[in-house]
């Protein structure tokens, strides 16, 4: 009746390796992580040395994407900025997911009256726009990398809280949670084993997508001058000057912009593939036609396929 019991992690890896999206995303994310690990140092002085004499030059053999307004190699600088951009985004995402999930779960598990208060609170927090909220927080905390990370983390937390709350509520309504309560499972164990484990999938996808969003949000803050401050640089920071000198050399803006987009998409796809691979229900894809008694049948009507000899 059942397949051989292989260890869970191996099954996850197998399922992941079997999906084309997974491979592509893995490669993309791998590239980004590799760049981040290499960091600014690995791209040599080209990324940071100011050389005004060669400022705003177009693409050439020496500088594949040309130079920016201070003569720095755009390609090198863009790749070097990966670490800062991604690491900060990861921190912000961790903050958002951590805080949001905790709040969402806590509210979901509360008694009805408290729950309604919590719901309203979350919805109110969500009604502030992401960027607006972030800007306000930065105004309070102060500009710079730290401020930006906290700001973006706080800005995205309510969405996670809401998401986790909805997911948790739907899981709590299921029979297996009721059955666990009847068995005597309570409190934190119930939340961890029964609720959290069953909301992890969609949360994972959301977290990775959020990572992409955090990159964009942080870049936006930096672009507004509220994020990373010189001499530290990230993609958003590069955009400030890149946009200003767009007509001199468009690559100064296009390069960081392209990487922001690429990173966003890569992480989103990755999260999708991971969540799908980690779901035990999808490990053995059997035809869903062998239904057990009590399941619903397909609708009557159209002829879909002709019978064949």
């Amino acid at each position: 009746m059942s397949a051989g019991a292989r260890s869970a992690p191996r099954q996850v890896a197998r399922a992941f390796a079997a999906s084309p999206t997974g491979i592509v995303a893995l490669v993309a994310v791998g590239a980004i992580v590799a760049l981040a690990l290499v960091g600014p140092g690995g791209f040599g002085p080209q990324a940071t040395t100011v050389d005004v004499a060669h400022a705003n030059q177009g693409a050439s053999a020496a500088h594949l994407l040309g130079t920016d307004n201070l003569g720095r190699d755009i390609l090198a600088r863009t790749l070097a900025a990966t670490r800062t951009s991604v690491a900060l985004a990861a921190l912000a995402m961790a903050l958002a997911v951590g805080a949001g999930t905790a709040i969402g779960l806590a509210v979901a598990a509360s008694p009805p009256r408290l729950r309604r208060v919590g719901e309203t609170a979350i919805d109110t927090m969500m009604s502030f726009g992401d960027i607006l909220l972030a800007v306000v927080v930065v105004a309070i905390v102060g500009v710079g990398a730290t401020g930006a990370v906290i700001a973006v983390g706080i800005a995205f937390a309510p969405a996670f809280a809401r998401f986790t709350y909805s997911l948790a509520r739907s899981v709590i309504a299921r029979d297996y949670v009721a059955a666990a309560r009847v068995t005597g499972v309570r409190g934190r164990r119930l939340l961890a084993r029964y609720v959290l484990r069953n909301v992890v999938d969609p949360l994972t996808i959301a977290a990775f997508t959020a990572l992409g969003d955090c990159v964009i949000a942080l870049s936006s803050l930096s672009f507004l001058g509220l994020g990373v401050q010189s001499p530290t640089f990230d993609w958003g920071q590069m955009l400030i000057d890149g946009v200003r000198s767009f007509y001199l050399n468009p690559w100064a803006a296009l390069a960081p912009a392209a990487l922001i987009a690429f990173t966003g998409v890569a992480f989103g796809l990755f999260g999708d593939a991971v969540a799908r691979a980690a779901n035990p229900l999808l490990w053995h894809d059997r035809p869903r036609l062998l239904r057990r008694r009590g399941a619903s049948a397909p609708p009557a009507g159209r002829v879909d396929s002709a019978v064949s000899r």
Binding site: R174, D175, Y176, A178, A179, A180, V182, T183, R193, Y194, R197, N198, P280, L281
Partner: peptide
């Protein structure tokens, strides 16, 4: 007192 539910697939934690 213990209760056994109608649908066993729904009454067991799919992740355990």
């Amino acid at each position: 007192v213990q209760l056994v539910f109608q649908d066993p697939r729904a009454s067991l934690n799919p992740r355990m």
